[in-house]
Design a protein around this nucleic acid. Sequence first.
DNA 1: TCTGGGGTCCTAGGACCC
DNA 2: TCTGGGGTCCTAGGACCC
Length: 475
Amino acid sequence: MRREASIAHVDLDAMFAAVEQRDKVSLRGRPVIVGGVAGRGVVSTASYEARRFGARSAMPTAEARRRCPPGTAFLAPRFAAYRRTSEVVMALLGEFSPLVEQVSIDEAYVDLAAAGCHDLSVEGVTILAERIKDLIAEATGGVTASIGVGSSKLVAKIGSDLHKPDGLTVAAPGGERALLHPLPVTRLPGVGPATMERLRRAGVHTIGDLAGVPLPELVERLGQAHGTGLYRLARADDDRPIVGEREAKSVSAEETFDVDLTDRARLGAEIDLLAARVGGRLRNGGLSGRTITIKVRHHDFTTITRSVTRPQPTDDPRLVAQVARRLLAEVDTSAGIRLIGVGVSTLSDFVQDDLFGEDAGDLFGSLASTGSGSEDGHEATDPPQVLPAEQGEAANRDGTTRADWRPGQDVRHDEHGAGWVWGSGRGRVTVRFEGPNTPPGPVRDFAADDPELHPSDPPDWRLDQPPKQDDARRL
DNA sequence: TCTGGGGTCCTAGGACCC
DNA sequence: TCTGGGGTCCTAGGACCC
């Protein structure tokens, strides 16, 4: 918490709908809903005219259609237009301070102290905020902003919400608790439905109620980080810094289907599309990542994730797709899949040189050597490539290297079928089993020195019936 | 016609290392 | 031979935000 009210939170009012109304005169003064307009769509933004009928963000569009009168416009989002408007606003804010934290497409914190030239008295920041509001409306062609100014992010954020739309709230230093305590706890960032319910059971309804709960009780109910965080926020004790640039931690894409899907071929095709989107965005950002995750939402809305972390980062859409397909192969999709997603995390801002030919050809080297062909152009009969540790990755701490256990290496054959090395490292080897006519089977984890692991000759079926390209891809 | 899409952070358990 | 604590990495799930 600062001595002066020098943090501004700028929030564009119903931005998506406001941009639509700006760009199309006939929409002005009418209820406008922007969001998914298909069967399972939800509302991204409802204009203030539509909110009067009860339409809200995150509400199913079907519900909004029921509530809003004839003549309401239901529009699919035009992100490019919103992004352009956002850029205009952010550039403008940048003229008031060198330190601007963009929180989302329509929201930012501005550090008014960082500029060093502003009058930080309550009167001074009030005049300043009025000017920012005027300039935003002018520069965007009529999109308005609400601004809160205070001594911390918390107070600024709550202030911007207090008199929406086109509002301005300046919280004078010293009055923070008086401002916060009458408000419902749900106004605090981090209090969603689950936390609200837990607090309600403890008799907590307002931020003031929350400030009366001892820290140990809060930690017990909400956990260490969440409990201490809310304990402090309820006291207006907030020193979270304004952070200019933030590095991405993950990149993902997902899709909800109009009807639940069971067809594995179709799901595989969807994974390819999602992986292509993710890979494209990774490459645009000069990023690559080691962890590949799929997300699967079942027909009943239960949602699971499955992930694998690889030794080397990648931005290759084909590789992402193949790993994602393998992960999906372990999920029961027979009852219907509502949503599927693909993500990449553990990001780094470089791409490891392709020392191992880190694509399908190598990951599935043994399959490729049976005649399915490899995408890196090696002859199908190429022996697996073995590199000394110093040429590949550094040796693991236990002395084993990736060269000891190569992905695709066949290691063991038992009642499950043939076992292939799927991943290795840190003294562990993960083996995937599959048979000639069965889908990829169980994955088992072995210690690298497990005597059960003995490389052996491939069974005959692999030589007689090389998998079709399609089968190889499905792995 | 219940429940999008892109993210972040936290927790908890198991494996492993020192 | 038994016991152990701290730290990191990985996986899975949950809550939350815009």
